Amino acid sequence: MAQQAGRRYLRAFVGGFFVAVPVTVTVLDRVAYVARVEGTSMQPFLNPEGVSACDVVLLNRWRVRNYEVHRGDIVSVVSPKNPQQKIIKRVVALEGDFIRTLGYKNRYLRVPEGHLWIEGDHHGHSLDSNSFGPVSVGLLHGHASHIIWPPNRWQRIQRSLPEDRGPLLSSHAAEEEEEF
């Protein structure tokens, strides 16, 4: 009798496992997952306490599936320098925008079609578009929507840009006024 119960339990566990794994993989691949944000490049907004603590954010993969991002969004992208690494930065300019760079080879540039200009909030301590140029929207990996750890910092991430950053001239000016 105990042997039959053990077999039923094992069969139920294996059956549940073969259902749970594909569902979990699909959710993580298509909908959302959590990621640790390490380093100082997004300070003071993320990791304000420095190296001693790391923020954990919810990355919404569903939102970027159609490459829908806006200026001020914090996004995760596959690093153009190291495809094995993902980086998290703020979108400063969209395709068609004219931007004043902070140390890129061209002082002013127009963001090419199908690209974004991304920067860390902690200028000078960030490997971002000022180092490697505009980033293809095909490298988008997720949109940071919430800080979920530590508990005292739990919040929805609002779209914002530092006053001294942003495009000099936007090809999307009418759209931006409606969004904010």
Rank of each mutant, 00 (worst) to 15 (best):
A2D: 13
Q4P: 05
A5K: 13
R8Q: 14
Y9K: 11
L10I: 05
F13T: 11
F13S: 08
V14K: 02
V14D: 01
V14C: 07
G16E: 12
G16I: 10
F17M: 13
F17R: 05
F17N: 07
F18D: 05
V19L: 15
V21W: 08
V21Q: 06
P22T: 09
P22L: 10
V23G: 06
V23L: 15
T26D: 09
Y33K: 08
Y33R: 11
Y33D: 14
V34A: 14
V34Y: 11
V34W: 08
A35K: 04
R36L: 09
R36D: 08
R36A: 11
V37L: 03
V37G: 02
E38N: 09
G39N: 03
T40F: 08
Q43K: 07
P44L: 10
F45L: 10
F45S: 12
L46Y: 00
P48Q: 11
P48N: 11
P48F: 08
V51W: 12
S52W: 06
C54M: 12
C54V: 09
D55P: 05
N60C: 07
R61V: 03
W62G: 06
R65F: 05
R65P: 00
N66G: 14
Y67N: 13
Y67V: 08
E68M: 12
V69D: 02
H70Y: 13
D73R: 00
D73Y: 00
I74N: 03
I74A: 02
S76L: 07
V77D: 01
V78K: 03
V78G: 01
P83S: 09
Q84L: 14
K86R: 15
I87N: 02
I87K: 00
I88H: 00
K89M: 02
V91Y: 02
V92T: 03
V92I: 15
A93I: 04
L94A: 02
G96L: 04
R100V: 12
R100W: 08
T101L: 08
T101V: 10
Y104I: 07
K105W: 15
N106Y: 15
Y108Q: 10
L109K: 06
L109P: 04
P112Q: 09
P112R: 08
P112T: 09
E113D: 14
G114I: 07
H115A: 06
H115F: 10
L116V: 05
W117P: 00
I118Q: 01
I118C: 03
G120I: 05
H122I: 05
H122A: 12
H123M: 13
H125D: 15
H125T: 12
S126T: 05
D128M: 02
S129C: 03
N130K: 07
F132Q: 10
G133Y: 04
V135G: 01
V135A: 01
S136R: 07
V137Q: 01
V137D: 00
G138Q: 07
L140T: 01
G142E: 01
G142C: 01
A144S: 04
A144R: 01
H146T: 05
H146F: 13
W149M: 06
P150A: 09
P150K: 11
P150T: 11
P151F: 12
R156H: 11
R156Y: 09
I157P: 02
I157S: 01
L161I: 12
P162G: 06
E163C: 09
P167L: 03
P167F: 02
A173Q: 10
E175A: 11
E175I: 09
E176A: 08
E177S: 15
E179F: 12
E179Y: 08
F180H: 14
